[in-house]
Simulated scan of single mutants.
Amino acid sequence: MENLTAKDINDRFMNKIAWVSVIVGLEIVLGLIGNVVVIYVFGRRYHHCNFRYFVLCIALIDLLSVFTTMPAEIVSQLYWYVYPMGKSFCKIKTFLSVFTISSETYCLCVVAVDRWRKMCRPHGWQIRPRHAFRICVVIGIISAMQSSPVFVLWGLYSYQIENITVTVCEKDEQYIGSNYHPIYISVNTVILISIIVAMNGLYAALYVNIPRLLLKGSFHALVN
């Protein structure tokens, strides 16, 4: 009978998903170039408006993901069953992953609200540049709070495959058998899906109103 090791099991898994790591690597390169260009254009060339702050916020979050989350994901994929980076690295990696996803979702939703108000409520209250900056700060704080349970719930977890002990970056061992981990994931998923649904609803309402707004001559508000 073949004497397998954790490294053998990891190598088999890595060979199956190597293409995923290649795609993530390409995303890192494209994300770095694209976001640097966006930050330069909107930071130095774009006129002063609330949309500028939102785009810069999204680009900076993307850049954070490019430098941290994506490379850490490649490490996880290459060493899935023999995770080499330790519990602290696992917690930080997962925190940043949840943080970037949450904050980008919130930012995109705020952009949808801003577009909707400018098009459908052009004479009502609008988000000003000073408001936009504060909103971006609040989004960062809320996303950090939403992601903070990761530091408790995530960590290294060892179990057996084919009588071989493997170590993965998943739930912390002290929470094995508890419901905290799935509850946290479920709550986060519901929150993000609800925001995405609300955002799509706003854009749907916006597109439905575009013909009427064109006739009224207020379409220029969308780009201001």
Rank of each mutant, 00 (worst) to 15 (best):
F133Q: 13
D172Y: 04
M70V: 00
F99T: 04
V38L: 15
I101P: 00
I139Q: 01
T165A: 11
V82R: 11
Y203A: 02
W154A: 10
Y180S: 06
I196D: 02
F95A: 04
Y106D: 01
N10Y: 05
G43Y: 07
V152C: 10
Y83C: 01
T105H: 00
S148G: 05
V75Q: 09
N3R: 12
A59M: 05
I92V: 15
G140K: 05
L26D: 06
V223R: 15
Y207I: 01
T105F: 04
V187G: 04
H123R: 14
V150N: 07
L78N: 15
A112I: 02
P182K: 03
Y40R: 11
P182F: 04
I28H: 07
V20H: 02
A205W: 05
E2W: 10
R44N: 10
D8L: 05
V166P: 03
V36N: 04
T165D: 13
F67H: 07
Y106V: 03
H131P: 06
R115L: 04
I185F: 10
W154V: 07
L108A: 01
T189H: 01
L153T: 08
F42K: 06
V138C: 12
K118F: 07
E104Y: 02
V20Q: 09
F67Q: 03
G177Q: 09
K118L: 10
L156T: 14
A59G: 04
N50P: 01
I101M: 11
